[in-house]
Simulated scan of single mutants.
Amino acid sequence: MTSNLIELCIDADDPVRLAAFWAGLVGRETDAHDVVLAGEEPAFAIRFLLGRERRTGPNQIHLHLTSTTPEQQQSTVDRALRLGARHLDVGQTPEEGHIVLADPEGNELCVIEAGNTFLADTAFLGELACDGTREVGLFWSLALDWPLVWDHDGETAIQSPRGGAKIAWGGPPVRPRSGRNVMHLHVTPTTRDDLDAEVERLLSLGATRLDAGHGDACGVPLADPDGNEFCVMEPREGTRRLRR
């Protein structure tokens, strides 16, 4: 038994506007203005929910977009700025090749330079870059049955055997949490009958139960070993697949 990653959920002040931004940036269509299909196989969605939390610092997750040439990197940056992004200073140096931006609601994203070897085998949406411990990387490797593709000095990364975006954790020190994360994951078991068993499996791997107030009325709310919220959904409940 395993969990399938179906979507990354982002709390937003204006879900329609933010969905339109990301749809335009990654070249996808929206479904009911709140979901964007992201990445190649294995595909998952980005869903934009009416936000209940206000940002008090950097997000625990930010997205990395890849480039095959310097011209493509600049084209992605230009497209993002036209759609409403802005440049963001997070202390990066001029020698660093990636370009840091914020989407219209301030969520961080990076446009990675061409030739980046770590993301060479990924899609345009190359990485969910997370603040987190090695323990949480090992948890998600077991939860999703995605092998570790990096495990060094407390940093970890996983990737589906079928390719697509990586999920990476930067290792300690981890920023102190202050309230519910703006971004969280939705996963689902293989079949509807496996929901309770999959929840129990995730608990045995190190997840903890959360009260219903942490969820978004559409799944079983849990927290990973770092305390980050995620939801276990019934199959086909969590996302509407989009047209390519």
Results as ranks from 00 to 15, higher is better:
residue 135 E to N: 12
residue 178 S to K: 11
residue 86 R to L: 05
residue 241 R to G: 06
residue 159 Q to R: 14
residue 57 G to S: 09
residue 63 L to A: 05
residue 225 P to M: 07
residue 102 A to W: 05
residue 109 L to A: 05
residue 118 F to T: 11
residue 9 C to H: 03
residue 185 L to Y: 10
residue 100 V to E: 00
residue 164 G to M: 03
residue 65 L to F: 15
residue 147 P to Y: 14
residue 72 Q to R: 15
residue 162 R to M: 09
residue 151 D to M: 03
residue 143 A to V: 03
residue 155 E to H: 15
residue 49 L to V: 13
residue 231 C to N: 03
residue 191 T to M: 10
residue 4 N to P: 00
residue 42 P to W: 10
residue 240 R to G: 00
residue 124 F to T: 13
residue 138 L to C: 13
residue 181 N to M: 06
residue 219 G to F: 11
residue 121 D to W: 07
residue 43 A to Q: 13
residue 135 E to H: 14
residue 108 E to H: 06
residue 183 M to Q: 13
residue 91 G to Q: 05
residue 224 D to T: 05
residue 233 M to W: 02
residue 114 A to V: 09
residue 243 R to I: 08
residue 137 G to C: 09
residue 38 A to E: 04
residue 69 T to P: 10
residue 33 H to C: 07
residue 14 D to N: 15
residue 149 V to S: 05
residue 130 C to D: 04
residue 82 R to E: 04
residue 87 H to N: 05
residue 102 A to F: 01
residue 89 D to A: 13
residue 213 G to D: 12
residue 232 V to N: 08
residue 55 R to W: 08
residue 111 V to Q: 00
residue 115 G to I: 07
residue 14 D to R: 08
residue 49 L to A: 10
residue 134 R to L: 12
residue 106 G to D: 08
residue 59 N to F: 04
residue 93 T to Q: 12
residue 76 T to W: 08
residue 81 L to R: 02
residue 55 R to H: 09
residue 25 L to G: 02
residue 202 L to I: 08
residue 210 L to P: 00
residue 200 E to Q: 15
residue 116 N to L: 00
residue 241 R to S: 08
residue 22 W to E: 01
residue 206 G to K: 11
residue 112 I to L: 10
residue 50 L to N: 05
residue 7 E to G: 03
residue 91 G to Y: 04
residue 178 S to R: 13
residue 237 E to S: 14
residue 82 R to G: 01
residue 30 T to I: 08
residue 162 R to K: 15
residue 228 N to T: 01
residue 184 H to P: 01
residue 139 F to C: 01
residue 202 L to G: 07
residue 176 P to Q: 06
residue 216 D to R: 14
residue 101 L to S: 02
residue 49 L to T: 09
residue 93 T to V: 04
residue 143 A to W: 11
residue 146 W to T: 10
residue 144 L to A: 11
residue 241 R to P: 01
residue 146 W to V: 06
residue 219 G to S: 05
residue 52 R to T: 13
residue 98 H to P: 04
residue 163 G to T: 04
residue 193 D to L: 12
residue 12 A to W: 12
residue 214 H to A: 12
residue 244 R to Y: 01
residue 8 L to D: 02
residue 47 R to F: 04
residue 155 E to F: 08
residue 7 E to I: 00
residue 180 R to D: 11
residue 242 L to H: 15
